[in-house]
Design a protein around this nucleic acid. Structure first.
Length: 807
RNA sequence: GCGAGAGUGGCGGAAUUGGCAGACGCACCGGCCUUAGGAGCCGGCGGCUUAGGCUAUGGGGGUUCAAAUCCCCCCUCUCGCACCA
């Protein structure tokens, strides 16, 4: 067997694994459970993307490695098949998603996923579009609603005119739809929301305790966005009191005007009659702007005076109230005090509308506040009795304390996070299980009536009316109120696809239970997830939503933990020849072609070798072939020739022992830190050493086979069998190493003169400075370099180097 | 603008703690074998060089016996947030 035929070998082991249920785990009887989760794909018609495979293989290596370490590894897979990705494609090819999705799932599983050699337990597959699954997605909604964590609200929402639906804040990227990159517009609509903000504090603070990729945590921190400050109460002259939020209460004496967001409800009652028309015009103008235009960089400030005045609580001054769209209704209280001397945006506004600018923080360098902003720190000036105190420090404390004693201020923390808008005016999703009754209002569908089945609509096209296509089905609409039995009407929106994916990992261990979303016992045993591997693009989408849902279910008493993933690892992105892959560039990698030509093992190994897993890699065309060449060499290096028998005794010579044990140690350590490229490099070094020195031995062959197994499972099985084993290599164990043997008996001591390498000495390990020094000084090159000089200092690093400092 | 990460040969990328820069691989060059090579095997491979060395990890300073690694300044790229008060 000089070379092997991957097609034959891989098919053989695929069948064997299926026959022997090698990839399944006894969920109930497992003693050392390890839940190895990878982000499930949506079954697109294009087929599995190489990016999916990169993610899966990197995760599978962990699963297989832990299996060899003796864990009972549960590695499930499913399909995130509801949502616009599936629906839009069905629309494009003019078919029905209910017809396309099962076919795509079948193809994903049978012709792609099963050929990659992933250790997946297909007896626990999840399909989010099956009624058995979305019944519980709807149960989540009902449960949240009953516990006050879901609510309906009318307000401005993000609308994607191309997808014809509203979007959550997280799904608007730079003012564009996350899915189709169309500019998002504002629309006033009644929608269902989940109270993500209820856990903003916990979601932020618990991040510190999580073993997650740092960049994922940073993205969540930015998104949740905490800022410290104070809420200060102002009063409209002859009108009501209102609160503003500021992070700079120390600059209160510098507030020369107030700004309300155009959507602020108080504007209606305080605007003076002669300004009403101007305000109405401005509001009209502001609402027409798209999200992109409104957020455009350095946009010219706009605004309108309301005619009303407010009283500054610290000095009693009457200052004008303006409405301007640079103040957002969704953040803080929707109203601010403007301090143009010390805030860039207020400064720009004040300059444009000729509003007074009063400096209250001494810059100390003669800053001209009429011309420029001074945002920094310093002693307070023009601030009455607070003069001289440090702004941001003592000044801030004193002003807030003083106002607080009169009930006019309190310290506040504000979050940028918004509640999650979950309504979608589309067809391909789980219907929101709510019935509207004229008498009782919105009533959750009774649990016994779940699932509210998604009807098969011939015409499921979204129409942009703001209503889901389900609204066009009279049979679906009709319902009776679960409360009073009177006539009712069904909610016709479906829920955001991210709700389906926010809980799928609770379902995997419990797919056999029809009467509960997840079994308490199995959940206790298997969750939280031990290791979750996925793409960082979900940092503030899926990962945030699922953390929130976990916390919500925890507080409702359904889970005894509040964080769903013990460890999350964000893998990198693959590019090809240094460029992003895209259909328009025509540089998409087709995994199937490589797998059928070189085998899944070679493809897996090349994907893992081409770069650091956590950073991503650059796919080069020749790489897979080269990796197949390595596997051929490995096979020759490991297996006996025709008629040859392998030595059964462990190798004796120190050099071979060193190679074997140091590679075992390094490969394990590398896998543990997701450094697959260096682990594979180690395997190559070992094979090179064996080939070069013509070393063949049963002990080495078995060790190398097991080290290879997480990366190239089919070939490892084939070798393991050829080495005389009947059971799967994955029922064996990870090879052990002897720490003493990982050190060479001889080491190379580097001799430096003034920090420059001038020689090397191969000598016994562990020499003391006294032992080494005469040998160093006797070295001919050293003698040459020391001629006519004197040694000022000697530095000895044990087993490594001897540095002579000479003048 | 704020935050995070990165910048190393022709290329992808290595380098647990400050201690031999360039592991491993690709490409390339030379040799062997061959009717042939898009096969296999062996060897070479940062740059300069007067062959002793010198120089080299984005640029410039610094700390140190010793810096890809630590500190300061600057440049470039990627990602996240961004009119968030």
């Amino acid at each position: 067997m000089a070379k092997y035929d991957p097609a034959r070998v891989e098919a053989k082991w695929r069948d064997r694994w299926a026959r022997d249920k090698t990839d399944q785990v006894d969920l109930v009887g497992a003693r050392r459970p390890f839940y190895n989760l990878m982000m499930f794909p949506y079954p697109s018609a294009e087929g599995l993307h190489v990016g999916n495979l990169f993610a899966f293989v990197g995760s599978d290596i962990q699963g297989r490695y832990h299996r060899l370490l003796g864990y009972d590894v549960f590695e499930p897979m499913g399909f995130d098949a509801f949502g616009m990705h599936s629906e839009n494609f069905a629309l494009k090819v003019n078919r029905h998603p209910a017809e396309m999705v099962p076919k795509n799932i079948e193809r994903f599983r049978e012709t792609q996923l099963k050929k990659v050699g992933l250790m997946l337990d297909w007896s626990h597959q999840v399909d989010t579009t099956s009624p058995e699954y979305y019944r519980w997605t709807q149960w989540m909604f009902v449960t949240l609603l009953k516990n006050g964590l879901a609510y309906r609200k009318t307000g401005p929402v993000n609308w994607c005119p191309s997808c014809n639906t509203v979007l959550a804040a997280e799904q608007v990227i730079d003012g564009e739809c996350e899915r189709c990159s169309t500019q998002v517009t504002k629309r006033e609509m009644a929608q269902w929301y989940f109270r993500t903000t209820a856990y903003a504090k916990e979601l932020l603070e618990e991040l510190d305790t999580l073993d997650w990729s740092e960049r994922t945590k940073v993205a969540q921190r930015n998104w949740i966005g905490r800022s410290f400050g104070a809420e200060v109460t102002f009063e409209v002259v002859g009108g009501p009191k209102f609160n503003i939020f500021t992070t700079r209460p120390d600059t209160l004496f510098g507030a020369t005007y107030m700004v309300f967001s155009p959507e602020h409800p108080l504007l209606d009652s305080i605007t003076t009659p002669e300004r009403v028309q101007a305000l109405a015009d401005y509001r009209q103008q502001a609402s027409r702007l798209s999200e992109v235009d409104r957020q455009a960089e350095n946009r010219e400030k706009t605004g309108v005076f309301t005619g009303a005045l407010a009283i500054n609580p610290v000095n009693g001054e009457k200052i004008p109230i303006w409405a301007a769209d640079y103040v957002l209704m969704g953040y803080g209280t929707g109203a601010i005090m403007a301090v143009p001397a010390h805030d860039e945006r207020d400064h720009a506004f004040a300059k444009k509308f000729n509003l007074p600018i009063v400096e209250v923080v001494d810059s100390g360098v003669g800053w001209d506040c009429q011309k420029e902003v001074y945002p920094g720190d310093g002693p307070l000036i023009n601030s009455g009795s607070f003069n001289g105190l440090t702004a941001k420090g003592a000044g801030q404390e004193a002003i807030v304390e003083s106002l607080a004693s009169q009930g006019l201020a309190k310290k506040t923390v504000n979050y940028r996070l918004r509640d999650w808008c979950v309504s979608r005016q589309r067809y391909w999703g789980p219907p929101i299980p709510v019935i509207y009754c004229e008498k009782c209002g919105p009533v959750p569908a009774p649990e016994k009536d779940l699932p509210v089945l998604l009807p098969t609509l011939e015409d499921y096209r979204p129409d942009g009316s703001g209503l889901s296509p389900l609204a066009r089905s009279p049979e679906f609409l009709r319902a009776t109120c679960p409360n009073c039995g009177g006539p009712g009407r069904r909610e016709t929106d479906v829920s955001d696809n991210f709700l389906c994916s926010a809980w799928y990992f609770y379902r995997y261990p419990s797919t056999q239970f029809a009467d509960r979303p997840f079994d308490p016992e199995l959940t206790k045993k298997w969750l939280p997830v031990d290791l979750y591997v996925g793409g960082n693009e979900h940092a503030v989408l899926h990962l945030l939503y699922s953390r929130w849902l976990c916390r919500a279910l925890h507080s409702c008493g359904f889970l005894d933990f509040a964080e769903p993933y013990k460890k999350f690892v964000a893998h990198g992105m693959i590019v090809r020849d240094g460029a992003k892959m895209s259909k328009s560039r025509g540089n998409i990698i087709n995994p199937d072609a490589y797998i059928s030509e070189f085998g899944a093992d070679a493809f897996r190994m090349y994907l893992m070798f081409m770069g650091a897993y956590l950073e991503g890699g650059d796919f080069r065309d020749g790489g897979v072939k080269a990796m197949k060449g390595f596997l051929d060499r490995l096979l020759v290096a490991v297996l006996p020739e025709e008629g040859e028998t392998l030595g059964q005794d462990p190798p004796q010579d120190a050099e071979t022992l060193y190679w074997l044990h140091s590679v075992i140690k390094a490969v394990g350590a590398d896998i543990a830190r997701f450094s697959y490229n260096t682990a594979i490099a180690r395997l190559m070094e070992l094979v090179n050493h064996l080939t070069k020195n013509k070393i063949k031995n049963q002990v080495i062959a078995e060790a190398l086979t097991r080290l290879l197994a997480p990366f190239a499972p089919h070939l490892a099985e084939e070798l393991w069998e050829a080495l005389g084993h009947r059971e799967s290599v994955f029922k064996s164990s990870w090879p052990e190493y002897d720490e003493a043997a990982t050190q060479r008996p001889e080491v190379e001591y580097v001799i430096q003169i003034n920090g420059k390498v001038r020689g090397r000495l191969n000598l016994a390990k562990g020499l003391t400075q006294e032992e080494l020094e005469p040998l160093v000084l006797a070295d001919p090159t050293v003698i040459k370099w020391l001629a006519g000089k004197s040694v000022a200092r000697k530095i000895y690093v044990p087993d490594k180097l001897f540095n002579l400092v000479v003048n």
